[in-house]
């Protein structure tokens, strides 16, 4: 039983076919990488999956629900959360508040209980704070909990974004270039963290350019080029696929 089923998804912007007829499916608790040259349509596919844009054609079935055309916040509430290629934190809020916002959909406090500060409300707020702190610990950010998110160094901002997606309670996590701009040491740390996320029983899809990283972490790889899926398989298979080599390096001269 697959967690995510993408069937014939296309997105056209006017005459431009950003992605065309993409299909694949994904089992739970696996790590999948989506690779491809710049402009291959990887981020467009992410945007379709998370409801930020509506696919022109095709269906996306997540955990048995057809989510194609759902709004972004609804998709998140159903269990798909993402990070962004250009980090999008709530820069003026503290680190822990960022993670508390992410638990928005997991708690139910109504206006009445908020104003009268009922026991249930206080209990909920305490657990929100504790949960947020746990996710910060998981991503190694607990010492920065009360700092302003915008003041964090770059690598920590990326990790905070991931902590936030985890706190939404999502079962499918989409990471858009999680190691961009990181040094090799930080990249290794990130690899371990993503493996830990899989150990939590979550499913991860990563867009990444760092081939060493992709080959080291992925259970499955999908290769896009010019909006079309040109290959799918285990890292070993992808490494030796002539179509993939051609997309990255160009055709051999005859």
């Amino acid at each position: 039983m697959s967690l995510l089923d993408i069937r014939g998804v296309s997105k056209h912007f006017g005459g431009i076919r950003a992605i065309e007829d993409i299909s694949f499916s994904l089992k739970s608790s696996t790590i999948m990488s989506i690779i491809g040259p710049n402009g291959a349509g990887k981020t467009t596919l992410f945007n379709c999956l998370t409801g930020f844009i509506k696919p022109t054609k095709g269906t996306i079935v997540f955990a048995g629900t057809d989510i194609s055309g759902f709004s972004a916040d609804r998709v998140t509430r159903l269990g798909i959360a993402r990070t962004f290629q250009n980090i999008r934190l709530f820069g003026g809020m503290t680190v822990i508040e960022n993670v508390m916002v992410a638990q928005h959909a997991t708690i139910r406090s109504n206006l009445f209980s908020i104003i009268t500060r009922t026991g249930t409300f206080k209990e909920t707020e305490r657990s929100v704070r504790e949960t947020a702190y746990e996710y910060l610990e998981f991503m190694g950010l607990e010492s920065a909990a009360e700092h302003t998110a915008g003041s964090l160094p770059y690598g920590a901002q990326r990790r905070l974004e991931i902590a936030r997606t985890l706190a939404t309670g999502a079962s499918l996590i989409l990471l858009d270039e999680p190691t961009a701009g990181m040094n090799p040491l930080e990249t290794d740390g990130m690899m371990q963290m993503i493996k830990n996320i899989r150990e939590m029983g979550k499913t991860v899809i990563i867009i990444e350019h760092d081939m060493k990283f992709v080959m080291g972490i992925s259970d499955r790889i999908v290769v896009l080029d010019h909006g079309v899926k040109i290959a799918e398989g285990m890292p070993k298979e992808i490494k030796n696929n002539p179509l993939v080599i051609e997309a990255y390096l160009g055709k051999e001269a005859h």
């Binding site: 916040d73 998140t76 709530f90 003026g92 809020m93 916002v101 928005h104």
Partner: peptide, 25 residues
Amino acid sequence: RSRIGRAWIALREDEIAASAMGVPS
């Protein structure tokens, strides 16, 4: 200082990120 206030401030800081966190903007 509640879920509602946090959602408002998140919307001010970054609306796209807020909706990605499940806040109906």
